[in-house]
Design a protein around this nucleic acid. Structure first.
Lengths: 118, 118
DNA sequence: ATAGTCACTATCCTAAAGGTAATTAATAGC
DNA sequence: GCTATTAATTACCTTTAGGATAGTGACTAT
């Protein structure tokens, strides 16, 4: 992942690091897609995520899920089924990303209005 | 820019597009750095931005500024000085990104606490 | 004439993100 | 034995973001 740069004389170091972490953690082509799907549809299996994340490949999905799991945003559960299925669910902690998503949506809505009048 | 993918049965199409736009507009290594600097230090010249955005090259800074200007987040003003100087300032519209930045910081702070206890 | 400032632009290059396609392991059904 | 399902992994390839370096054009100062 490309390390994000952000410095600001107005923010203390802890906040700068937090901002940097948050951006890096959530950036990429598929992160929000996966989180939104898990958030709105609940626990999902690998196969389900393959289908709802339109155009993703198993390799990329697998990698994304690993990153999200490492960062405690989702849980991975192997089910005792045949063939083996694996369930993914967002953690309570991941629900905190909703505030970010809402802020992005609100900004995006205002932005679209601004741009339309150009 | 890599087009972000996000779909969700819970969000209507307008909000999905807004989210997509916002993410794409703000993603990249330098966007937040530049916006934060202009926000906290006020109007800045190209040269100033080169110095505060530690490690950026003129080519990349130029490209980032063009993108931000196209999206009405900053203004570009050529000053009648010798040699010519150019001033960049954030627009009132760009100040709305503060909500996004704050949400990211809040999430990042909580996230750092979570990860520390791993 | 030469060197310096400022705001870039041009060219080339690397590293990382992401895509394609094939393959694997475990198991079940036919 | 052969095919199918699920959740991956592997090797390979392409695209893109961004970095390194040099150069340009308008001007000033010495």
């Amino acid at each position: 992942m490309t390390a994000v740069k952000c410095e600001s004389p107005k923010l203390d170091n802890e906040r700068i690091l937090a901002l940097k972490d948050a951006i890096e953690l959530l950036s990429g082509k598929w992160k929000f897609c996966i989180l939104l799907n898990l958030y709105s549809l609940g626990t999902m299996r690998f196969k389900d995520l393959m289908e709802t994340s339109n155009g993703i490949t198993p390799k990329v999905l697998s990698k994304e899920l690993q990153e999200l799991e490492e960062n405690l945003l989702i849980t991975r559960t192997v089910n005792n089924t045949k063939p083996v299925t694996v369930s993914y669910a967002i953690t309570p902690h991941a629900i905190e990303t909703q505030a970010v998503i809402n802020a992005l949506i609100e900004f995006g809505l205002k932005h679209r209005k601004k741009i339309k009048g150009k």
